[in-house]
């Protein structure tokens, strides 16, 4: 009986099986990457807002602390969005004729709320709390990026579960001290470092000195047994990764 298939059909068959597999895996990989991409997570995309509120001007330009506006970030789950009156503390006298600020003035006149569009929005089945992160030593910019350089607000992180877990598995690498030894020549060392957008973790060329009782302690690394993060995780009693990666930490 004559051969129906040419010999090369063998290799074609093998190649197409392999090709098919590669295609399927490739498609899966592409889908996974796509759902992590800004197209799906909106990371890095500024939303339209009633007033183009520039964090850059107010934080870096004027030096206003986050807590002036986000008053509850240290004590509650919700960071707080400033009411119209807070804007008017200053804008009662500053830029009073600017059309850009008309919605703020209108809101004060009529009592209607300014309606901001959320940039960071977790699904409602996820429990998140600012105060514990702030108090245990996670800086705002670790999660929100360099807010002081944002002309308009956007979310820096994907806010996906993977992102939360990456930190919860090893929080020490992201912890910083509240207070460092003050250097009068360097205003960034003044005040709570959680709100310091330019905080740098310790390294050999940039040691970080904190107070321990009545003496000072200097760190030259973030991780490892002598690392600042390891030290802070211990003194702040940060719970074990096992505790904070269990499902009911965030889904309750």
């Amino acid at each position: 009986m004559a051969q129906i298939f040419h010999r090369s059909a063998n290799s074609i068959a093998k190649a197409s099986i392999l090709g098919g597999l590669i295609l399927v895996v490739g498609l899966l990989w592409a889908a996974l990457q796509l759902q992590r991409s800004p197209y799906f997570t909106y990371a890095g995309v500024a939303r339209p807002q009633p007033v183009p509120f520039p964090h850059q001007h107010h934080v870096a330009g004027l030096g206003i602390d986050c807590r002036y506006c986000h008053t509850t970030v240290e004590v509650s789950g919700f960071a707080g969005i400033p009411p119209t009156r807070t804007c008017m503390n200053c804008h009662s006298q500053i830029w009073t004729a600017a059309p850009m600020l008309e919605p703020v003035r209108e809101s004060l006149r009529t009592g209607k709320s300014l309606v901001w569009t959320r940039a960071n929005d977790l699904p409602d089945f996820v429990y998140f709390d600012h105060s514990i992160h702030v108090n245990k030593g996670v800086g705002c910019n670790t999660c929100h990026g360099r807010v002081d350089q944002m002309p308009l607000m956007y979310n820096q992180a994907s806010l996906q579960m993977e992102w939360c877990l990456n930190c919860h598995r090893d929080p020490a690498k992201n912890l910083r001290p509240h207070y460092v030894k003050e250097d009068p020549k360097n205003p960034a060392t003044m005040g709570d470092q959680i709100f310091n957008m330019a905080y740098q973790e310790p390294s050999d060329s940039h040691p970080v000195t904190i107070r321990e009782g009545n003496t000072y302690k200097t760190f030259t690394s973030q991780t490892g047994p002598d690392g600042l993060g390891t030290y802070l995780a211990a003194v702040n009693h940060v719970r074990s990764p096992r505790d904070i990666t269990s499902c009911n930490t965030c889904h309750r």
């Binding site: 004027l62 030096g63 206003i64 602390d65 807590r67 002036y68 200053c90 006298q93 500053i94 003044m190 005040g191 709570d192």
Partner: peptide, 28 residues
Amino acid sequence: RERYNIYCSPCHSQLGDGNGMIVQRGFK
């Protein structure tokens, strides 16, 4: 001191002389 620096220093300045950043930008 910390709260003063957050809420008051924008206008009153950290020194308390009333020459804060917002005043330099035109506030009374």
